[in-house]
Amino acid sequence: MNLIFSSSASVDPDTQQLWAVLQERLQHISHQHPDAVFASSFGVEDMLLSHAIFESRLPIHIFTLDTGRLHPETVNMVDVIKARYDVSVEIVRPDQAAVSEHVTKHGQFGFYESVELRKACCFLRKVEPLRRALAGHSAWLTGQRREQSLTRSELADAEYDTVFGLQKYNPLAAWSESQVWSVVRALDIPYNPLHDEGYPSIGCEPCTRAIRAGEDLRAGRWWWEQKSSKECGLHAGNLQESKG
């Protein structure tokens, strides 16, 4: 299916071309990797990719990681997607016994105490569940963009993910924030209402805040840490690329 903008859509020609290329790329990825999966956090980039996948009926399986600490607005996006696209997104959850053990030892908010404890929490709630979800697949997709942060400035369009052992695609790597939003608004793609409250990047509720004017797009994620450490482990390769 070729998703075309109406003549009244306020989308510039360059962005329309990006959208056309994205559709072709997703088709190509799905042909090369019939078992490809897409890990969605329901951020605006992920909703744009989901829309392209759903409307073109591509066989790319979409799942989300429910860490147990998400905003209610984020959790509700599962129902929003079901209502709009009649598609049920798979929900992948952490090992509750391991999470409970960690919380008992370090407390509900131990991640504020050190980068090590924060990464340990991210590992239990996000990395380990993602590893399970990716097991046996040959490729996965993300909604990452180079413009989002220092750790993503060298993001490749496609790369071999040495952390999880499969091909990884970042189809929106070259997109700007304004290009993403122009397509989302033109096609009336549903999105997390937290974006309208100053959250350009949305993660777990205790680890995410709204950003202030002029701040980095991911300044609200783990705001108590240095910019160079702001990845949770899902995209650990970004930290390696950003060194130096």
Rank of each mutant, 00 (worst) to 15 (best):
I4V: 15
S7D: 15
S10T: 10
W19C: 00
L22A: 06
L26D: 00
L26T: 03
S30H: 11
H31Q: 14
Q32P: 01
D35R: 09
L48R: 08
L49H: 03
E55N: 12
S56W: 10
I62C: 03
T64G: 00
T67L: 05
P72E: 11
V75S: 04
M77F: 05
V78L: 04
D79G: 10
D79K: 14
I81N: 02
K82G: 13
K82C: 12
V89M: 00
P94H: 06
A98S: 10
H102G: 06
G107V: 08
Y112L: 04
E113M: 05
S114T: 12
A120Y: 11
R125H: 05
K126L: 03
A133K: 10
A139M: 06
A139C: 08
A139P: 02
L141T: 01
G143W: 00
R152L: 05
S153Y: 07
S153F: 12
E154W: 01
L155Y: 04
D157L: 12
D157R: 13
E159D: 07
Y160V: 12
D161E: 08
V163R: 12
G165S: 04
L166H: 09
Q167G: 02
Q167F: 14
K168V: 06
N170R: 06
A173H: 15
E177D: 12
S178M: 09
S178P: 13
Q179A: 15
V183L: 11
V184Q: 08
V184G: 14
V184R: 10
R185P: 00
R185S: 09
L187F: 07
Y191Q: 09
D196N: 11
G198A: 04
P200G: 07
S201I: 03
G203P: 10
G203W: 05
C204V: 06
E205Q: 13
C207V: 08
T208G: 09
R209F: 05
E215S: 06
D216V: 06
L217A: 08
R221K: 11
S228V: 13
S228W: 11
K230R: 15
H235C: 13
G237A: 06
G237L: 03
Q240M: 13
K243V: 11
